[in-house]
């Protein structure tokens, strides 16, 4: 912190995004999406229709004064606001993100609230921030519960999803059952003007994903959040379709049972695949990395082909069944 009270550039950006099916029978159009995501009266929902229907709420802020998780159990206190926002893709997949950025150091004493309120989405540490240790602590996969007094981005994102789920526009009559996924992300600055990179990307059985990024320091926190929302959306699509297809006893299941699983996927999910549609141009090369390894789109195309093959088989079987019926 310098004498003028300016916050130096952030050295750490962390967030968690939760992704799931919008709990309602039919997808929402742009107008209803805007009504759902109107979290603030003073700021508009951003709705865009190209290349797909995408609505993003304004950021809402949550004031916190808490410890940050660290890999080495160092006690780091930070004060400020966490930003949270929700996005709805094609009126069908709902995501909530809670995120913050933090500078390398802050004043040694807590300041009046006004000081923090003019820095939305920034957590200012008391003293120096060990950004590596905080990033590692934040991504640690064995944190089954957030200790009390420690920052819980997940619960802020969850709270936002809960609030949206109670909206009267939603009827909770979902076209199919599906699980939510959580993507926890942390971004540290690149060393010596190197290119942006993905250091680590992990998948856990219980729906938790973690990703560690190295990005140019000039990258806006909201742009990182946008990239991670896009990754989380496509990871959720893959996860959900794989789970649904795994649930079918291939070969053994009857035509109607297969159709019950496959049909909602065709109706609601297959057209949602559009990697990097809205990712900041400076970050879109990161998507190309994931396309090579593990190969998101390759796996998706295989799944889509499997679904189409099932539909073809059912179409062939249907007239045969009809002609043998008494």
């Amino acid at each position: 912190m310098d004498a003028t009270g300016e916050t130096p550039r952030h050295v750490l950006t962390c967030g968690e995004v939760r992704t799931g099916l919008l709990p309602t029978r039919h997808c929402l159009d742009g107008r209803d999406a805007a009504r759902l995501l109107a979290l603030r009266t003073d700021e508009q929902v951003r709705v865009s229709e190209r290349p797909n229907l995408h609505a993003r709420s304004p950021d809402v802020l949550t004031g916190v004064d808490c410890r940050l998780p660290t890999a080495n159990d160092a006690k780091i206190r930070a004060i400020g606001t966490v930003a949270a926002r929700a996005v709805l893709t094609e009126g069908r997949v709902l995501q909530a993100t809670a995120y913050f950025s933090a500078p390398a150091a802050g004043l040694d004493q807590r300041q009046p609230w006004g000081y923090y309120l003019v820095r939305p989405g920034v957590l200012v540490p008391l003293g120096r921030l060990p950004e590596q240790a905080v990033a590692a602590g934040f991504l640690a996969r064995d944190r089954s519960a957030v200790p009390s007094g420690e920052l819980g981005l997940g619960s802020i994102a969850e709270g936002l999803l809960g609030q949206l789920s109670r909206h009267p526009l939603l009827d909770h009559d979902v076209p199919f059952k599906s699980r939510r996924t959580r993507l926890r992300w942390a971004a540290l600055p690149v060393q010596d003007s190197a290119d942006a990179s993905i250091e680590r990307f992990t998948l856990d059985d219980d729906g938790l994903r973690t990703i560690e990024l190295r990005l140019p320091q000039s990258t806006e926190p909201a742009a990182v959040a946008g990239l991670c929302e896009d990754l989380a959306l496509h990871d959720w699509l893959l996860t959900t379709v794989v789970q649904k297809l795994d649930g079918i006893r291939m070969g053994a299941a009857e035509g109607a049972a297969v159709m019950n699983v496959v049909r909602p996927l065709v109706d609601h999910l297959l057209h949602l695949w559009m990697p990097s549609a809205r990712v900041d141009r400076t970050l879109s090369p990161l998507w190309e990395v994931l396309e090579t390894e593990p190969g998101f789109t390759r796996q998706w195309q295989t799944l889509v082909q499997r679904i189409r093959d099932q539909l073809t088989l059912q179409a062939i079987a249907a007239p045969a069944e009809a002609s043998t019926a008494p």
Binding site: P23, G162, S165, H172, V174, K177, S178
Partner: peptide
């Protein structure tokens, strides 16, 4: 209510 809604989706 939140818990039931969430579990119902899943």
């Amino acid at each position: 209510v939140d818990l039931f809604l969430r579990l119902n989706a899943e």
